[in-house]
């Protein structure tokens, strides 16, 4: 793998990680309050295009997360190129890895 391709992979990795983190915060975290209808407000919009708004929101962020994983599968997770996944200490110290007390 040349330097340019390595750099592109690193950038893509950063962007996808960022998008995935945003999707978690928006879809499963405080971002939910952007659309959450107040339970006490009877006039609040509870649907969007006929669907319950919270359900539509969850499905949207699931699609974002799924897209990130598909892109990672296609362009990042190249198992054949991940030759160095053993902990460095295992390479260095043999089978007993980290011998720090």
């Amino acid at each position: 793998m040349n330097d340019r391709s390595c750099l592109l992979r690193k950038r893509l990795s950063t962007v996808l990680s960022l998008v995935f983190a945003i999707a978690i915060v928006m879809g499963a975290g405080p971002g939910l309050y952007l659309v959450n209808p107040a339970p006490s407000d009877s006039a609040a919009h509870v649907t969007w295009l006929g669907l319950p708004i919270l359900y539509a929101w969850i499905v949207f962020w699931f699609l974002v997360e799924a897209m990130v994983i598909v892109l990672a599968y296609l362009f990042l997770w190249d198992a054949a190129q991940e030759s160095d996944v053993l902990p460095e200490s295992q390479h260095r110290d043999g089978p007993h890895g980290n011998t720090n007390p």
């Binding site: 609040a44 509870v46 649907t47």
Partner: peptide, 11 residues
């Protein structure tokens, strides 16, 4: 489902 009480459609 849209007719459910608001507590069932929100956090």
């Amino acid at each position: 489902v849209s007719q459910l009480p608001p507590e069932a459609l929100s956090l």
